[in-house]
Amino acid sequence: MHLSEGLLRPEILIGGAVVSAAFTLYAFKTLKDDEIPKTAVLSALFFLASFIHVPIGPTSVHLVLGGIVGAMLGIRAFIAIFVALLLQGVLFGFGGLTTLGINLFNLATPTLIGYWLFMLPSTKRWQKDLLWFLVGFIPLALSAFLLSLTLALNGDVFVDAAKLALMAHLPIMFIEGFITLFALRFIEKVSPHLLHVKKECYASHKCA
């Protein structure tokens, strides 16, 4: 899921960096001190998730867990993912500094959809479970789509790139869907305030 250095055209790198910088700066500016511990823990989770790697066909995919990061952080996911991607690039060579912006865009933007799905009202247990599964599933699918789009803009044939990216990530989408569902159910059971605070926040529009 991380695009390597020296692969993309400068205009794609700059475009991705500008958009990501805007989201990240906004998230930093509006970050409140009581949100920082949760953001740090989810940044660490995202940082470690990328090391759980599953070989599939000619390539290799890894866990992302962007959905749960987005569901619990909203726009703050940009901060958590920015820090994690920066360290992955500097320490391990996953992605890189020049591709940090476009990688952040491809991975963090779909987590906002995860946040939106998490906030959708649900009255029945099965509806909530389905939404929480989709919180893990959909953002990863969108990230794979954005990855394909990026490669297509760079000159690759979009259909081939999209097919490969979506097929390669399909098993991980289901795995992440279930991990996210069970993780959110567990949090709901042991620390419901972590989820309820977010919902109250959302309902009262107090979380910028």
Partner: peptide, 13 residues
């Protein structure tokens, strides 16, 4: 390096 990454995250936040 993984531990270093976690320490940096802790320090940064």
């Amino acid at each position: 390096k993984m531990l270093l990454g976690l320490v940096i995250i802790l320090f940064f936040f």
